[in-house]
Amino acid sequence: MIDHAHDLASVHEATERLLTAVAALDNAAGARPSRLPGWTVGHVLAHIARNADALGNVLAGRPMYVSAEARDAEIERDAPRPLDVQIDDLRASHAGFRARAAEPADWTRTVELRNGVTDSASRVPFRRWAEVELHHVDLGIGYELEDLPAEFTEREIDFLADRFDGHREVPSTALRSDGGRTWTTGGGAPGDPVAVEGSAADLLGWLAGRRDGSALAVKGGTLPALPPL
């Protein structure tokens, strides 16, 4: 069962970690390349802030973004800002999301995200947690997949394994972490089952498109090529 209150507390903790890390950067850091192709550190910070606004919109029953074009334009607009402005925006957008989430609401209701995707309102805080944690890693400032909270890593693997379950381009795949956790995914593409083993961080990195999977052990075939998220 999803505990949205627990996840909201985790979002706050993750955001505080992010703010502390970003505050230690010099002002030139915003223009440096991030780990996301074509995006600077400033682009990633702008996206994290605007995503908080967007998920607040979702909780309020409004469209997540006005349009894909408007989303992209806002990120481009905000990316070049000085670091202190980025930090203030991250803090303010986080406060806005928390305030929206604190309003009395039916957390079992269905909400709409981007591109017609729907989900339970109770899962929105975890989606925000994922945005903060994974994009903190994407900044390339010393926070790695291995530094993520173990609970988050396992739950995000749960989420992504479920997302690719039955996908027509992904063969049946059994995942196993070196901690003994197992997952299954794929199954929509022809081919023999594939077993993939490795650390939880490496499994998450592969599923989330943050690592190429070269550190994973593969049995029964080749490492499946995953479609974009």
Rank of each mutant, 00 (worst) to 15 (best):
M1T: 05
I2M: 11
H4P: 15
V11A: 12
H12F: 00
H12V: 08
H12D: 14
H12I: 02
A14H: 05
T15Q: 14
T15F: 01
E16R: 13
R17G: 07
L19K: 01
T20G: 06
A21W: 02
V22M: 03
A23R: 12
A24H: 06
L25N: 02
D26R: 07
A28N: 05
A29L: 00
G30W: 00
A31S: 09
S34G: 11
R35P: 00
P37K: 02
P37T: 02
T40I: 12
T40S: 15
V41H: 06
H43P: 13
V44A: 12
L45P: 06
L45S: 07
R50T: 15
D53G: 12
D53A: 12
L55Y: 15
N57C: 13
L59C: 12
G61S: 12
M64H: 07
M64L: 13
S67T: 14
E69P: 09
A70Y: 04
R71F: 12
A73Y: 07
I75K: 01
E76M: 11
R77E: 15
D78P: 01
P80S: 04
L83V: 05
D88K: 09
D89K: 10
R91K: 14
S93Y: 06
S93K: 14
S93D: 14
F97M: 10
R98K: 06
R98G: 11
R100C: 13
R100A: 15
A101W: 07
A102D: 14
E103Q: 15
P104V: 03
A105N: 07
D106F: 06
W107N: 05
R109H: 04
T110R: 07
V111R: 02
L113V: 14
N115W: 10
V117W: 08
V117F: 14
D119N: 03
S122L: 07
S122M: 02
R123W: 12
V124Q: 04
P125I: 02
F126D: 05
R128S: 01
W129C: 01
A130P: 01
E131L: 01
E133C: 13
H135K: 01
H135M: 02
H136G: 10
D138I: 06
G140Q: 03
G142S: 00
Y143D: 13
E146L: 08
P149L: 03
E154W: 10
R155L: 13
R155K: 14
D158L: 10
L160E: 03
L160T: 10
L160G: 03
A161M: 07
F164R: 01
F164I: 01
G166Y: 04
G166C: 11
H167S: 06
H167I: 09
H167G: 08
H167L: 12
E169M: 09
S172V: 00
S172L: 15
A174E: 14
A174K: 11
L175F: 14
S177L: 08
R181I: 00
W183S: 06
T184M: 12
G186K: 04
G188E: 13
A189R: 14
P190I: 04
G191A: 10
P193Q: 05
P193N: 08
V194H: 02
G198R: 06
S199T: 15
S199H: 05
A200Y: 03
A201E: 08
L203M: 09
W206Q: 08
D212T: 08
K219P: 00
G220Q: 03
T222N: 08
L223S: 10
L223I: 09
L223V: 10
P228C: 09
